[in-house]
Structure formats: structure tokens, C-alpha cells
Design a protein around this nucleic acid. Structure first.
Lengths: 242, 242
DNA sequence: ATCTGTCAGTCGTCCTACAACTTCCGCGGA
DNA sequence: TCCGCGGAAGTTGTAGGACGACTGACAGAT
């Protein structure tokens, strides 16, 4: 972690990410004491300010517990956080981190004007073009969710539009410079027989619906997605802190 | 915010809490720029380190967006975060913050040995005494949730046991020095006609179940609670960040 | 055995200084 | 007039040093 040159993100952020990955990988076990701030300063060759900034971030995320006069400790919730709902990551990555093999199967793909409801959620004018994609999400070839994603196309690079709905939604958005940094998700319980499709369509149709609006770092809405998770096939965990 | 003496919590934490409440109250509107670090230093009469520590915390919680060279901005999600699932607070407080009047109605209260499942979740020996409380949660006299709470009684002050199930669970736990600092919550969609009771029992019985284990700051489990929120009567929002 | 004071280790806060980045505004040229 | 460039001012990021406050452990006294 040298003095850096063309780093596009802050030193403290990278340090936090590094420590975070070490915690996730088990290098630092839950409950274990992290190296002291002074040791981290020597190891990473950064100032104590930077170390403390990173630790603060991890503490606010619930990953570590900083105790005055005692040290910093890895929170006991590592395993739970790994699939934590408050962490914004693609469903594929989450499935992979849980030890399963993810796969997407596209069911429909359509370019059309935004409905009034979608326009309101995305903060665009009604009738603006969007791309709507319906997909089934599988883990180890088992259907775990059905997703309905909507991406506004205004200002979206033409050559990337065709990629939308092909591979990872997050990946394509990232390539377009519209990587989601935050998402506001509503949680609902839904019982509806018209949601899913295919041979694995669940009976009865009981789902946890995640109705999300994704925002870029600058605050503009980049996608609206409704994902219906088949109840019982996907574990939702939220770490709540104060 | 003077130099303080008997403060049981850190200066930076209190500062973050103060700024947070100002954001919530609308004193700083979503998207608006916060005072610069230098101005906050002057206003609160603390060092810049303390100000930055507080801002880091708020940033990690998703409430503010700190931009290098530009300033700190209130995130656009203030309204959504207010009822955010990732914020650990009592249901009563959440209902109040949403502008409704909360009320609890006790349905059952029983001291009994822990079931094996409860013992496992709470990390106690099977058969240890717990207090189980069933309650209905109302907002403006409308049933919004049914809760099943379990508190292990080992090491719990006798004089406070009778308070359990009377008023706020969080309040009693706080009085016992066991204030929950974190909770790990599982989210499920549940369709079950045997859950609720009373004249407002919903038909059909569709609920969002929050299956939570509450932990004290030191990591010991202080309560297990299953809360069945009537679908549609309570808005669940999660702010997801990366 | 219990209590107490000491001490080393660690985090909390403060100060000062400078680098890096953003924004804005004015100047000059087309 | 319009556009583009540069620089100044303001703001956040990082560094280094200093000291206070808290914790945990240990030795000594009771």
C-alpha cells in the first residue's frame, strides 16, 4: 500500500476493503483481535489517520468492534454478513459466496416506454425509453428467484444496450460508468401465482419481494428491479446496528 | 459539546448522533450540502479529527456522501432510511418516527424452559429459563405486527423480570444493562392463518417475518424475537451500500 | 483469598501542515 | 459574443507528533 499514484479511490477506502477481505477470507477469525492501530500503520505504511478512518468504516458496517483501551475485534457476525441484505452486490456474487453456482436464464427482453410508476421511481419523464428484462435466477440449477429489471436508456451507450440482459446487469452498468453504489429496497411478502414460470415454478407462489431502485454514486437512478425470491430457497439476512 | 467528563460514550459518536438527528428532522434537507468540516469544528468546538470520524460513520451508514474537494452532502435517502431495516431501533420508535402513535397489547406472558431451537439461537443451554412474551403491535390503533419475544433469564435482575412484557422490551433490556447493539435478522415471507389474533387479524394471513437475534455490545445474545408484520401495513426499507 | 495501586498497551482527541481535488470566475483569444 | 484555459479559493485526504483516557494484567498489601 505505497504512497499511491493514479488511485481512483481513497487510501482509507482501499485499506478498509483489504481488511474486509481478510476478515471474509477467515484470516482474522470472528471474535479475534485485529492488529493494533500502530501495527497496522507499520504494516501498511500509512498514517494512523488513515488506519482509523478505515476502522471507523468497518465498525459502522458492523464488521469490527473498536474498544477504547483494548483493541479492535472482528465482529461475530462474519458469516451472516456475507449474505447480508445491507451489502449491495449482485445476486450472482452473493450466490457464489454462499457456495453455489449461479446461472441466469432470460425469459423476456423488451425495449419500451416507461410506465408512469417506473418513471416516478426512476425520476425520469414518463414515456422515456427503458429496457425491461425478465430473468430466472438459479443456484445449482435450482430456481431461487424471478427478476423484473428496468433500465432507463437515456444517455446509455448504444453499443452496451445489446449487452443488457445478456450477462450480469451490474457488469454492464459498470462498463457504462453507471455502477450502482446504493440501492433503496422495499421488502414485501407476496403470494401470487402469476409471478414465476418454467418447470420449477413454486407451488404455492410465496415470495419475498425486493423492490429496489439502484443509484449511482452521484445519486441518479440507474435501474429499478423487482426480484421475487422463492420463500425458503434463499436466506435473507440483515445486520442491524445502532 | 464541551470537553466532557462522565460521558459514557465517545465524543465522535455523540456528534454523529447529533448530526444524524438534524438530518432526520429535516434541518439538513436531502441532497443539501452540510457545513464544511471547518465550520463544524467551530460550531461544535471539537477537533477536525472528531468531526471527520463522525462524518465517516454517517457515510458508512449511507446518510451522507463525503466528496473530496467538494464537501459533505446529505444522501437523498433520508426519508427511506428513517424506517430503514438496517437501523436497529425499537418498533415503537420506528412507528413514532413515521408519524403514527404506537401501542403494544400483551397477549401472553410465560416463564418456561427454552426450546432446543431457541437455546441454539441464543447460545444458551437447552432448558434454561426464558421469558416468552406474545404481543400485538398497533399503529394508530391498527394492528401492524404480532411479535413473539424470548429473553433468557440467566443473570437477569429479578426486580426487572416483572417489567419484561409490560413496557418496551428495549427499555427494560437497557435498564438491565443489556441494551441490544446489534441484531442479526432473517427475512421470510409467511402465509399462516394461525399467527395473529384479535378482531384485526388479517385475512389472508400474509406476513413478512423478521426472525431476529439481538446481541449486546459485548456479543452476548440478549433476546430472540420473531415479529410477523402484516403485509402492506408496514413499509420495510433497506438501504444497501457497497 | 481479596483488594488495590501500578504500569504497559491501546484507543480517543487535539494540533499543525501540506497534498489532492472541485468549483468558480475572470481573462484572453477566436 | 462565445469558448477555453488557468488560477485562486475552498474543501476534503493524509501525515506526524503529542497527550489524555481507558483496559487488562500483575505485583504487593491487607
Amino acid at each position: 500500500m505505497s504512497t499511491s499514484l493514479g488511485a481512483r479511490t481513497s487510501l482509507a477506502r482501499r485499506l478498509a476493503e483489504d481488511v474486509r477481505s481478510r476478515i471474509m477470507s477467515g484470516e482474522y477469525a470472528p471474535g479475534e483481535r485485529l492488529p493494533s492501530e500502530a501495527e497496522l500503520v507499520r504494516h501498511y505504511e500509512v498514517s494512523r489517520v488513515t488506519v482509523r478512518t478505515a476502522l471507523r468504516t468497518l465498525e459502522a458496517q458492523g464488521l469490527v468492534d473498536v474498544r477504547h483501551g483494548s483493541g479492535s475485534f472482528v465482529s461475530d457476525f462474519g458469516a451472516g454478513i456475507r449474505a447480508g441484505l445491507q451489502e449491495l452486490r449482485s445476486i450472482s456474487d452473493t450466490i457464489r459466496e454462499m457456495g453455489h453456482e449461479p446461472r441466469m436464464e432470460r425469459h423476456a427482453r423488451q425495449r419500451r416506454p416507461a410506465t408512469p410508476g417506473e418513471a416516478a421511481k426512476l425520476g425520469i419523464a414518463a414515456g422515456e425509453d427503458v429496457l425491461a428484462v425478465e430473468r430466472m435466477i438459479l443456484a445449482d440449477e435450482r430456481a431461487v428467484a424471478y427478476s423484473y429489471d428496468v433500465v432507463p436508456l437515456a444517455g446509455f451507450p448504444d453499443e452496451l444496450v445489446e449487452q443488457l440482459g445478456a450477462g450480469s446487469l451490474f457488469g454492464t452498468l459498470d462498463a457504462a460508468g453507471l455502477m450502482p453504489a446504493r440501492a433503496l429496497a422495499e421488502v414485501h411478502a407476496i403470494s401470487d401465482e402469476t409471478i414465476g414460470w418454467g418447470p420449477q415454478k413454486p407451488v404455492p407462489g410465496l415470495y419475498v419481494l425486493l423492490d429496489q431502485v439502484h443509484f449511482s454514486r452521484r445519486g441518479s437512478a440507474v435501474a429499478h428491479s423487482r426480484t421475487y425470491f422463492v420463500e425458503g430457497r434463499f436466506q435473507f439476512v440483515v445486520l442491524r446496528t445502532n
